[in-house]
Amino acid sequence: MYATNFSRAANLADASAKMGAATDGKYLAGGQTLIPTMKQRLAAPSDLIDLTRIPDLSGIKADADTVTIGAATRHYDVATSATVRGAIPAIAALAAGIGDPAVRHMGTIGGSIANNDPAADYPAAVLALGAGIITDKRTIFAEAWFQGMFSTALGTDEIVKAIQFPIPAKAAYAKFPNPASRYALAGVFVAKMKNGSVRVAATGVGEGGVLRFPALEAALQANWSAAALANVAVSPEGLLSDIHGSAEYRANLVNVMARRAVAAAG
């Protein structure tokens, strides 16, 4: 890791001020992606501004239609939240499957979606549910948020405050992990919204990060069942291909994981 300066932000204004004063600052939440990246010397921020002690950034709230999760809320707290388990059990299950227990104790939802890491799990849920990303400046919806691999609409001086998920009628997430890294080789989130619309988003497979699969959505829109997907081809076009699996294999996994997610969603 290159030398860096660490400071804790007391509140959002303090965080912005500290970022403004830094030559090449970065916000630090759980650090479960940023610190490994810095250890490999692939990132060299001059300053790290710790957001996790800002009181407003952690916590989980729900109303009849939405669940709102503070950006600095740890995966473990999402996974074990009675509120999340009750309203959107698919989100709790997804959080319970991120990394390993020690990573879940540190990692945060804000950090997970801030980078559009192609193998992170939360982006699939955010995109499939059409969640809103609430920053200190605005609310950005999922479609506009993800802008390609490792790229989002987040401004350099902007802080993610919370993620607001609409509560779906049915949803589930199914992941096939990369055997080595245990990140998603294909992670598919399926959702049937209360208005009847269906969305399917997958992580781990797209060259441009998380993406939706309209053919699968159409089939499920017509018939919400795993069987409805049996003969729906997923094109390998635009999917990742590497030493762990061809695009064709990943395309297959998208279909298989989508079927399993639908079965799990009921």
Partner: peptide, 17 residues
């Protein structure tokens, strides 16, 4: 015998690149 290879063997497809 990775999942990708075994899947490819079962289905007669390419495993990885």
């Amino acid at each position: 015998a990775t999942p990708a290879k075994v899947w490819a063997a079962i289905h007669g497809r390419a495993a990885a690149e």
